[in-house]
Structures are given as structure tokens and as C-alpha cells.
Write a protein that binds this DNA or RNA. Structure first.
Length: 374
DNA sequence: CAACCTTTGAAGGGT
DNA sequence: ACCCTTCAAAGGTTG
């Protein structure tokens, strides 16, 4: 549905965000939607709004800053989509998908671990982490603080931006380690050992409840699960989140701690790591789900993902543009990052890896009300 | 134990 | 340009 302007192509769906908001008379819808879980939403929203406000302010600054440069480019391409301008003027986010700093170009603050209070960071923090986890940790993917910097020759621009601050390059690496070979070979030093960006364990969400994340996890989307490591996994040895062992679901922690660590360290495992699977970057909604799932679970005491996802789907629609925009932007960044790291990767690569046949999902679209917990 | 369920969005291929 | 399919997360459920 989003292929509104199909063009999206070249730049990672710049339009995505607009699309979702588009038509649908969301205004009304939102209002109605709110009804279903007022409590939850109110809560949710309040948290979002508060922070978002902050974000907006700071964000504006950032945008302003960054926009001068790259936005220029970006804007040019997507101006059409943004024509709604007026509305978003202060919304912040929408002023041109200010990609103000995309990783390699200008690592946006969000990606900077110690970065000064980065506005963008706030942006992300929009969603409060119920469990003390910094939102960024969950939203910002591909990052690893420990990730080793030995600056690999990054694909595309990375290397060409000498001007980039040093930590940037490091962070860079941390976001998305080098792709193995075409997509892949991760130099030993580069292995995702430190942190995943993509989920590692299925229990990810549950564990977070009980602990606070080490600061180091701050950038990984899955940091919680990672850090805690379902099994106290050591940070090192964790492959890049986007990369998953072919056979297994990344969720199983068995997952390869060795996969990448192995190359240079423990030779014990015989299992040869066939080539790792690089997963698709998460879209806005997926990012939202990841972040909010725990909250919903806590609030609703639900466990089934299917049910939770339904709730999240509704909540997603209930979000304001700005709120959603945050996720769209994050998703876009992820996509860009992913693209830079795995230039040759195609979504098609993973086709057939999962034998799913959605078969008839069409049928009863019973509009249950069971969506709101409580 | 793999696939299903459930959501939205992105991407790719086909027409 | 539009439509359809697949995958992304996730964890309980089902066959």
C-alpha cells in the first residue's frame, strides 16, 4: 500500500512516512481509535508527547543545522512528498525528512553514544522504555559500542568522508559492521562481536524487565536482550543483528555466539557457519513494535504475539504523525545504513528462507474489540 | 519442531 | 503504475 509514489526507490522510501498518514482520514480514525484504549493510549501518548516535544525543539535545531547540507539534497528529491509542509512546519520531523545526519555522512546524534545531548537522540527516546532501557537502545540498530573500529574500508561513502569526526567512523562501524564480503566478510576485527543490532533472542523483551542495561548497550536495538544475554552472553561473540545464522532463528541464543566470534577465536565449533543471513531492515512499524511490545505485555498481561501485534497495530494508527514520523525516520536510517553496509543485499535474498505461506488470511476480518487490554 | 498467527511497511517481480 | 507476494519481530499455539 505504501507505494504511493513508488519512486521511493532510490532513496529508501523517503516517502514512507507520508504515505501512512495519507488518506484514511486519519484524523477521525485516530480519535476513534483512541477510544479503545484510552488509558493506554493516554499514557502512551503522554509519554510520547512529552518527549516528543522536547524532541521537536531540539530536533528543530538539529534539523536546521543539518538541513543546510544534506537536507538540501534530500529535500530536493522528496520535496514532492513534503509539500504538505505547512502542517509539519513545527512538527519537526517532517520538515523534510531531515536526514540530518545519516551515519556515514554525519552521524546523527542518535547514533552517537556519548554524543552530547543529541536532539535526535531525544527524538528516539520518545518512547519511554518501560524498563529502564533507553529507547535508543532498542531503536537504534546496528550499533555497537564495542564494535571494533578498525576502520574497514567501508563501502560507499564511509571512507570518503574524512571530515567526519573520528568517533563517527567508529560509531559507524558500530552501527553496521562491515558486510561480510560483498555482503560480507567481516574482518575478524569487525565481527559483530559486540553487539547485535538485530535481535538475538526471543526472550529479549521479557528480560529487560528485570534489569537495567549497561550503558554499552545503548545503541543496540536489541540491546536488552543482548546485554542480558539470555544466557549471560558475553558481548563479544555476538554477531551483527542483521545477520543471522542461516538455519536458525536468531532467537535461539544458541545462535551463534560463535558464528562470528569463531573466525578468530574459538575454533571449537565444527558447525560451519554457512553464510549468515542478512535480515531485512526493520520498518517503522516493526521498530515501533519492538519498542512497545514490552509495554503492552506488561499492561495487558498478554503473551501471544498475535494478540499483541493487533493491539500494537491499532496503537500505531492512533499515533500522531509526529509520533509515527519518529519511527519512519528511524526506519529510514536503518535502511540506509543497511544499504550501505550490504550494498549487494536484496530483500529477495531471503525469500524462501522461511517457508511461510500466508494462506488465507483474508476471510474473517472480524473486528474484535479484544484489542485493548484491560 | 516448523509453521501459524497477527500487525504494518518495504521491496521485488509481474502485468 | 498498479498489484501481489514475501519478509521483517515475536512468542504462544497448533499440527
Amino acid at each position: 500500500m505504501p507505494q504511493l509514489n513508488s519512486g521511493g526507490g532510490d532513496d529508501l522510501g523517503a516517502n514512507d512516512e507520508m504515505i501512512s498518514f495519507k488518506d484514511e482520514g486519519e484524523q477521525d480514525e485516530k480519535i476513534q481509535e483512541n477510544a479503545f484504549t484510552e488509558g493506554d493510549l493516554a499514557d502512551l501518548k503522554s509519554s510520547l508527547v512529552n518527549e516528543s516535544e522536547i524532541n521537536q525543539n531540539s530536533n528543530a535545531a538539529v534539523v536546521r543545522r543539518g538541513q543546510q547540507d544534506e537536507q538540501r539534497v534530500y529535500a530536493e528529491k522528496h520535496r514532492e512528498h513534503l509539500d504538505e509542509g505547512p502542517k509539519h512546519q513545527d512538527g519537526g520531523m517532517y520538515k523534510a525528512p531531515s536526514y540530518s545526519g545519516y551515519p556515514f555522512l554525519m552521524l546523527p546524534d542518535p547514533y552517537l553514544p556519548n554524543g552530547p545531548v543529541s536532539p535526535s537522540a531525544n527524538k528516539v527516546s520518545v518512547v519511554q522504555q518501560p524498563h529502564g532501557m533507553h529507547p535508543l537502545t532498542s531503536l537504534l540498530p546496528y550499533s555497537n559500542e564495542h564494535f571494533n573500529p578498525s576502520p574497514p574500508h567501508l563501502p560507499t561513502d564511509m571512507s570518503q568522508k574524512p571530515g567526519v569526526h573520528r568517533h563517527q567512523s567508529q560509531d559507524l562501524a558500530s552501527f553496521y559492521p562491515l558486510p561480510p564480503g560483498g555482503v560480507g566478510q567481516i574482518p575478524p576485527s569487525m565481527s559483530w562481536q559486540s553487539q547485535p543490532v538485530y535481535p538475538l533472542s526471543s526472550c529479549g523483551f521479557r528480560q529487560p524487565y528485570s534489569s537495567s542495561l549497561p550503558s554499552s548497550s545503548s545503541y543496540s536495538r536489541f540491546s536488552h536482550s543482548l546485554m542480558l544475554g539470555p544466557s549471560g552472553m558475553h558481548p563479544t561473540g555476538i554477531p551483527h543483528p542483521a545477520i543471522v545464522p542461516p538455519s536458525g532463528k536468531q532467537e535461539h541464543d544458541q545462535f551463534d555466539r560463535n558464528m562470528y566470534a569463531k573466525p578468530h577465536s574459538e575454533p571449537k565449533r565444527e558447525r560451519e557457519p554457512k553464510k549468515p543471513v542478512i535480515k531485512k531492515p526493520l520498518n517503522a512499524f516493526m521498530l515501533y513494535m519492538k519498542e512497545m511490545r514490552a509495554k503492552v505485555i506488561a499492561e495487558c498481561t498478554l503473551k501471544e504475539s498475535a494478540a499483541i501485534n493487533q493491539i500494537l497495530g491499532r496503537r500505531w494508527h492512533a499515533l500522531t504523525r509526529e509520533e509515527q514520523a519518529k519511527y519512519y525516520e528511524l526506519a529510514r536510517k536503518e535502511r540506509q545504513l543497511h544499504m550501505q553496509l550490504y550494498p549487494s543485499w536484496s530483500a529477495r535474498d531471503n525469500y524462501g528462507k522461511r517457508k511461510r505461506r500466508k494462506r488465507d488470511k483474508q476471510q474473517d476480518s472480524t473486528t474484535d474489540n479484544s484489542l485493548d487490554c484491560s
